[in-house]
Design a protein around this nucleic acid. Structure first.
Lengths: 197, 197, 197, 197
DNA sequence: CTCTAATCGAGACGGTACGTCGCGTCTTACG
DNA sequence: CGTAAGACGCGACGTACCGTCTCGATTAGAG
């Protein structure tokens, strides 16, 4: 029962090629997701666009979905790493502003990540990260269960930012940050923390 | 030359057979969605379960997605028709209570509709209906754009109710209705209507 | 185990309708065989062309092939009934002339009957009729077995007449009759009858 | 987008697999044609018998008919290559003897090739080859047109040999060769060459 | 001249086969 | 070590046509 296909290491940066290959695949996916959803894309198309052999794909990812997850996970990770310090400083409005600015700087990519079939993957990735953060602390028993609050915040951000990026004539970042802060983040954080009333 | 697949009338209740067939297909889909997502299901499986010929499927729906949409549209329609009067009476808390009671009475079905790949279809269906309702009136210019408010309400309800239905030991309906009202519906309705401040 | 489909009587000319229906179907088949072979034709096409309901087809024929056989059998029967007396008068050349004249008068129909997939049915029909005629008499033991002679005569006539009808600028009937007589009929008849030598 | 079915090279004997696959398909077809006609066979059956994937069939042949043609063409080619030298030596009787012996050595295969739906393909293949041979020379103007003669010879051989192979108690090869020579080949060749009389 | 049986049309369906698409595996051979 | 490319098995798709059934017209000819 020998695994015949060679599997390049995901971590050891010994060789540069695997890294380049993966990068090319992710880039190709982003390119193609501009037009159609993930399920309309064939792996052949992705590899061709990436300038990589068809078989090679499977040496790096077991399926299309894994590639998308890799992509989404990467971006979400970066986003969170950028925003978390601001959040922890306590100024939620400022953190939303940072988030919006960051996303606007990668408009094209994030519109794809928050639209169509990719949106689900991105939201799941967000939830995963959020759960990790939430799980490490205990919470006062507000009238809103912590998990529900988390869901509302994550899905609210994802949906609203997606809506924002899909607009033809998008609102200014400051306006968007205000909306996110006032309608999604601050009230739900408060609801989780507040004493029931 | 071209036999062209026959398309039974959707409306004429003259003949009972087409109606029964469609009902059987919807029921089979619900059954199977209990285990797996839509894309893991083959049309053959659905038709077999429904006790219907494979080809017959295409006489009624052009694709799996259409069947799911039919299903989701149906249910959402019913739900909205039930809840809308209560909403218009002005008591939002009461309307959420009605919604939760209605959903709890169809627990199994709605868990499916709000989980996995079906959730997206259900949300879209909700949005479609909500847009229709929203479009027919003009709105005061609150600080939250009407469209954003609608998105938040719909996705909030969908996500939270989905979360509720997936729980092993679910919250009581009254509690759930309170959460929905206080965290999703009332604040967002208010934000759309209120003068900016 | 009741045969639900109503089967109109094939013989009893009680009603004129079945007769007309069958005639229409045969005519439609001839029409359509002008363009394509039998297997490229769908029963729906034939019935549509005949101005007859799809289901009706099966009330008269069990399959496309049966319709074609009906058609071919009919024509072959007529041809043979016309030619047999001349054959039995002993003048083979004259009989070939009669055959060619008869066929030329129904050029279009016979080109279809002797071309493509219909040719096989026509040849089989011929062979069936020929066998009947041959079986009823005993034959002197020539060097050519009677059955082989029959096959050569039938297939020779079918192939050559088919070739003749497909020509753009066809030979005159007299010439054709001469060819058939000299190359196919007379030598083979002789060979069957002659003493071996 | 378009994966387009892969088409293995017909010629490059680089790889042995495609060759083996095609051979297996031909063998399976021969096997199955023993029982039923081509149109009663499904491609699935053929591939299953050949121990080959269903899709693979289409990587090699566009349709069942193509496979049959491949088969028939192959055999006819071999037969003609074997017989042609003998024909050109001038001894027609001897060439018929060679033909009969060759066919008898492959009895089972040739009975299939000359029976039922395969017979038409084989005859066409024969005609194609014969036309090629005939077209390359000019012919004296006998009373029988060269094309008609060719048709008579080819169809005569095909029909008689088919009849021979279908017999329960077949004639000896010498007898069969005599019949073919005296009734089909020699008279028609003579008729094409002779001055009209 | 009616009315009743023979004939037909239309809608719907179950089922078989087709040809196509894409997936994932394997092998072989090349940098 | 990593990749490219050819060939394949497999599962699903969507289509075409077949043959059957039901139901409801229509129509012709016997009374």
């Amino acid at each position: 029962m020998s695994q015949k296909i060679y599997m390049p290491h995901l971590s050891t940066a010994q060789h540069a090629k695997p890294v380049r290959t993966r990068k090319a695949l992710r880039a190709a996916l982003v390119d193609l997701l501009g037009d159609r959803g993930l399920e309309q894309l064939s792996i052949r198309e992705i590899t061709t666009r990436a300038g990589v052999g068809y078989t090679t794909f499977f040496r790096h990812y077991p399926a299309k979905e894994a590639l998308l997850n890799d992509l989404a996970g990467d971006q979400v990770q970066q986003l969170v790493e950028m925003a978390l310090p601001v959040v922890q400083s306590g100024d939620l409005r400022e953190s939303m502003l940072a988030l919006c600015r960051y996303v606007e700087g990668r408009r094209r990519l994030w519109r794809i990540l928050l639209t169509g079939s990719a949106a689900a993957a991105t939201r799941d990735e967000f939830l995963r990260v959020a759960e990790e953060i939430v799980r490490n602390q205990t919470w006062p028993e507000g009238w809103l269960p912590a998990e529900a609050g988390m869901i509302l915040i994550v899905s609210g951000i994802v949906e609203l930012v997606g809506w924002w990026l899909r607009q033809d004539d998008p609102l200014p970042v400051e306006r968007m940050a205000e909306i996110l802060d006032r309608s999604v983040v601050t009230p739900n954080v408060a609801a989780v923390l507040q004493q029931p009333g």
